[in-house]
Structure formats: C-alpha cells, structure tokens
Computed example of a mutant assay.
Amino acid sequence: MKLFTCPACGNLVYFENVACTRCGATLGFVPGEMVMAAFTPDGDRLWRRVGDANGQYRKCSNYAVHAACNWMLNADGPAELCAACQLNRTIPDLSIVENLPLWRTLETEKRRLVFTLMRLGLPLTPRSQDDAGLAFDFLADPDPSFNERGRVLTGHAQGVITLNIAEADPAVRVSMREQMGEPYRTILGHFRHESGHYYWDKLIRDSDRLPAFRRQFGDETLNYSDALERHYQSAPPEDWTQRFVSAYASSHPWEDWAETWAHYLHMIDTLETAYQFGLMIHPRAGDDANLDVRHDFDPCNQPVFSVLVDHWLPLTFALNSLNRSMGHAHAYPFVLGPQVLQKLEFVHLTVRDARLPV
C-alpha cells in the first residue's frame, strides 16, 4: 500500500481516512490518479480539490450517504458510485442496523484489494457493464446463529464473489478460523483468494497458459466437489509444506491457484508498504548477507520475480521478530519451498502479461 499525505497540510494519512487528523480537511481518494486529495465544499453536494481551481468532484454515493467509502468522482460524469463500489451487485439490508458496520468493514478491505489490482494494471470491469466482469454479493445469513444450515457460503462463481457479512464480525471470524483450521483467515485474505478464482477464469482458463498451469498446479478437471470432501475428511499430504502455500491449496488445483494468487497479492502489498516507508533490513548480528536488503523499488513494477523474493524473505523474518517482541505469534507463518516459489513466479508472470496499457 502506498503512503498518502494530506495536500492541505502535508500530514501522513491512511488510505481509509476521510479527514486529516491534523488540519481537519475533508479527504477523498481519486482513483484516476491513485492519490488522496483534500476537498472544500463547492455548492450542493459538490466539492473542489484543494490546490486545483478547475473541476468539481462529488463523493461516491456510498461515501456521502452511508460513510462506507472514501472515493471521489468527477462531478461531470454520470456515475453515482466509484469504480470500487460499482463492483457491488448486492449489499446487505441496511434497514437492519447491525448490518451497516459489518458492510463498512467489508468495503474497507475490498477497496484495498481493488487498489492493488489497479496498481498491478489488471483488467477490472464491473459485471453490470460486461457479462465477463466482476461483481460482489455481500449477503447475510437468514439464521443469525450462523450455523451450517442455510448459511451463506463465501466463494466465487462465474465472476460473482460472494462474502458472508458475518466474516466482518471479529468474534465470528475467530470462531470460524478455529473450526476451519485456517490460522491466517482474514477478510482481505478472502477477497484476494476469491479474486484469484475470478482471474483464473479470465487469464488462464481459455488462454495459452493453461498447459503451463497444469504442469505447475495439476489437472483442474478433477472433480472439485470430491476433492474438497477428501480434503475435509482427511489430513493434507505430509509434504504439503514443500509443494503448497497452505494446506487448503493441496485440495484441488483451482484452490492451489487461488491460494497462491492471494499470497502473491499479500507479498506485493506488503513489499509496497516497505518501499513506501523506505525500510532497510540490516541485522546487527549474524553474517547472512541475504538478510541485508534495502527496499528501494516499487514491487508493482518489478519485472524480475527473484528480486521480490530476495526482499520478501528478510522482511518477513524481521516482521516475525517484531511480532514476537510484542508477545504475538509469527505474523508470517509460511514456508516457501521451491515448488511454491515456482508457482508464485507463474502468478507473477501471468500478472505481468495481463497488465493493461497505460
């Protein structure tokens, strides 16, 4: 994630901020420029950008009405929703008071996904504009007890990503994390994983990359339902840590791809944050030169995958050490074996080839 500043006073602000904590200026993200801008009121529902005398803006409707977004639109355009919110096909029933804060949490994480996809230059068209586009359904369980019967299942089907809004409840998510044996279960992780299924359909399924995919990940025509049932009924392969990025990835080639895709997005976003902060890893003990790195490049535009790995491993070593100092478990409990790295490189090359022209 990039670092942003308030144009009105230069204060560092977060991607999610709607107001500057120093000067109080109204903030909004301008996706066409991938920047955070400061705004002053300029008539009915209109805003003018600080430092720009030309052009007016409007808040995305979900920003103005529900405080569930912080993206801005050019006032002369017809859209009421920003590029991220246009991807929504279904939002929760907001007449139920409890749904609004859950939906806001989901939208915050979804915008981080959309930001990274935009930074990588990946095709991102709303399903409302293209039958092959992407859509999100945010749904609530009919039974508030969140039991298995009648439960809304998080997943992807034909370009539609469905997310159960109960995932935005921390207590429910922790419970599900324990039940499913998924120690790294997060909302953003869900979004990244399910986007992997969408981009498999878009970038792999009908492309000349399919044979190479099968060599790396296996035959995706294997019965998917049977594979998942076997996964949940038995333990993963003993050597799964050497061949897969997660135990769940071992269930089926589609899930292997989606887990690897999500992990690649984890890497890119975290490395971009390290780059934005100008981090340098320079241990004062030991003599491993591989741990001595400076994060001095933009990972979203790095063509060589090995460079990403050379910077990723020292960063996660330091990240785990910092977490342990705070009394927490490792923030990055993964082992990237040679086969996993090959799969990650395949994702990297697929993303590079899919970049839209600037």
Rank of each mutant, 00 (worst) to 15 (best):
A157V: 10
Q158G: 07
G159M: 11
V160D: 12
I161L: 09
T162W: 05
N164K: 01
I165P: 00
I165M: 00
A166S: 13
A168L: 02
D169N: 14
P170F: 05
V172K: 04
R173S: 04
V174G: 05
M176S: 01
M176R: 09
R177W: 06
R177E: 10
R177Q: 13
E178N: 12
Q179S: 12
M180I: 10
G181Y: 11
G181V: 12
P183L: 07
Y184C: 10
R185N: 12
T186V: 13
I187E: 00
L188N: 08
G189L: 03
G189A: 06
G189H: 04
H190S: 12
H190L: 13
R192A: 08
R192F: 15
R192Y: 15
G196Q: 06
G196V: 07
H197N: 11
W200K: 03
K202P: 04
L203W: 09
D206Q: 07
D206N: 09
S207Y: 10
L210P: 00
P211W: 10
P211E: 06
F213D: 04
F213Q: 04
R215C: 05
R215L: 07
F217V: 04
F217Y: 08
G218S: 08
E220G: 02
E220S: 06
E220L: 03
Y224W: 04
S225W: 13
D226C: 09
A227S: 15
L228A: 04
E229V: 09
E229K: 08
H231G: 03
H231F: 15
S234N: 15
P236G: 05
P236C: 08
P236A: 05
P237A: 00
P237E: 01
E238N: 03
E238F: 00
D239V: 01
D239Q: 03
W240K: 02
W240D: 01
T241S: 08
T241E: 05
Q242W: 11
Q242V: 09
Q242F: 11
R243P: 02
V245R: 03
S246G: 12
S246D: 11
A247F: 03
Y248C: 11
A249S: 12
S250L: 02
S251R: 02
P253D: 04
W254T: 01
W254P: 00
E255K: 03
E255W: 02
D256N: 14
D256G: 08
D256S: 14
A258M: 00
E259F: 13
E259D: 13
E259P: 15
T260F: 07
T260S: 12
W261N: 00
H263L: 05
H263Q: 07
L265V: 05
H266T: 15
H266R: 14
M267Y: 10
I268A: 00
I268T: 04
I268C: 02
D269V: 06
T270F: 06
L271M: 06
L271R: 00
E272T: 11
A274I: 05
Y275P: 03
F277V: 09
F277I: 08
G278M: 15
L279Y: 15
L279D: 12
L279H: 14
M280E: 15
I281D: 09
I281T: 10
H282W: 11
H282S: 13
H282R: 09
